[in-house]
Nucleic acid binder design. Structure first.
Lengths: 243, 243
DNA sequence: CGATTGATTGATCCCTATCAACCGACGTGG
DNA sequence: CCACGTCGGTTGATAGGGATCAATCAATCG
């Protein structure tokens, strides 16, 4: 059965045991299927009245631009992720989201979300949980920038993506396909692209990871995890709180 | 009337128009009043079964510790803030919270929260909104570390605290009382305490801000805002989405 | 085929960490 | 009441990590 559920349903089920009615409501989130080409701006900072999306296939990233042109990538988004929830709750979006690969996603209207909360309180809890999990990822990202060296940051980022993809069965401990450029990594990690390149070379020379031609290969998962002080606790919370 | 409402109620009212029943439910969050002394650990990372708090008076901060002893301060908390919501939703806390000043707070049990969601769906939406606002602050913090220089970071941090305190009428454009040490700033901004000191001296010499003896004084609010590229949009969202 | 995008490497510079020392304020205990 | 330890703030000297500037190269593409 699980294979027939949408990625979002699967994700939320990990938190609360959803009733059939809840699942039905969620299923309604999955109509209005759309697809986007690489580079498409799905959500614009400052835009009001934008809707949210549930990512079904492909990679995206959310970011903020500063007046001086600097770009900070806040996070990368993978299938199952809820995109632009904040843009809907606040009426005007405080960040932008861009497609990296070709993307398939379901558009979710503000009214869908608010109505479903009124009808299905368990679902509201589940969405709050999912939002909290996203916040936990941003927090870990913050720790990454605040406490770690360039090398540790790159390692941590590659490991986090690996762990998230593994949950989706899109990768394993040997590696995964990764459509990011070194510029993406640089803007996510607060480094220059030139330095990201050097760091990747060093990690390769140390036989820890390689990231070439769209593929990340873990050469020494153990040592890499130690180097990055990577602890995936923040990614998979232990089972349903609400039964 | 507003003055009789708890800080949390006031905050959530800014988003959804709460019914009397909702307000009553929230009022129940405000029993179990407790107080803590400076330095008290209100929430421990890794601890399970901890409860959440609504901060009524005083300052606190949440942080994460890395295995190597580095500390990243994730955010500072002011009256009205919901502390440890994530610790409750995930069963085990992924961060710690420590009191900076003497604190008064109301303890909120997990069961209170979950029950209230079932009874008052609007309230669930309001809490989700509040959580999203917190996430927006973490995101801005991330941008701070990723894109700004030491000087800009310090300026931005002092401005953000000023704006938040102004909303609470605990400060204005001239300045505010600030119980932070330079070590707090350092750990929040990914800098060394020594460097924070130098930056503060420089900002003082440039007649932009002073931070001495527990008081922040804005000397040139305009120029400081420009320097920090500070835009308070992420702090106050425009009025109720749900009426 | 020229143009663009992403990866790569080298040289140089500067911002910030680190180490070290010192000061004043405060609290505590002999 | 003074000695002492601690904590927060301050300043100086030095070192290093990462930015910046510049050039080259491979792959892709209209």
């Amino acid at each position: 059965m699980l294979t027939e559920l949408s990625p979002l349903t699967r994700k939320l089920s990990a938190f609360v045991a959803l009733s059939d009615a809840d699942v039905a409501t969620l299923t309604r989130f999955d109509l209005r299927r759309r697809s986007f080409t690489p580079g498409h701006q799905m959500i614009h900072e400052g835009q009001s009245g934008s809707s949210a999306f549930v990512l079904a296939k492909g990679w995206a990233f959310s970011y903020k631009l500063l007046p001086d042109g600097e770009r900070q990538i806040v996070g990368f988004h993978l299938p199952g992720d809820f995109l632009g929830l904040r843009s809907v709750l606040f009426r005007t979006s405080d960040h932008s989201i861009e497609a990296i690969t070709r993307i398939e996603a379901s558009e979710v209207l503000t009214s869908d979300i608010l109505k479903s909360f009124a009808q299905a309180p368990r679902l509201a809890t589940a969405v709050l949980w999912a939002a909290s999990r996203d916040e936990a990822m941003v927090v870990e990202h913050l720790v990454n920038l605040g406490c770690r060296s360039a090398e540790e940051r790159v390692a941590h980022c590659l490991l986090e993506l690996g762990a998230r993809l593994a949950h989706l069965e899109l990768g394993d401990r040997t590696g995964y396909d990764c459509p990011l450029t070194q510029y993406h990594l640089a803007d996510a990690l607060g480094l220059s692209a030139v330095h990201v390149n050097r760091v990747l070379r060093h990690l390769r020379e140390e036989r820890l990871v390689t990231f070439q031609k769209g593929r990340v290969c873990f050469e020494n998962f153990r040592r890499l995890t130690e180097l990055a002080q990577f602890d995936e606790a923040y990614l998979d919370q232990d089972g349903p709180l609400l039964r």
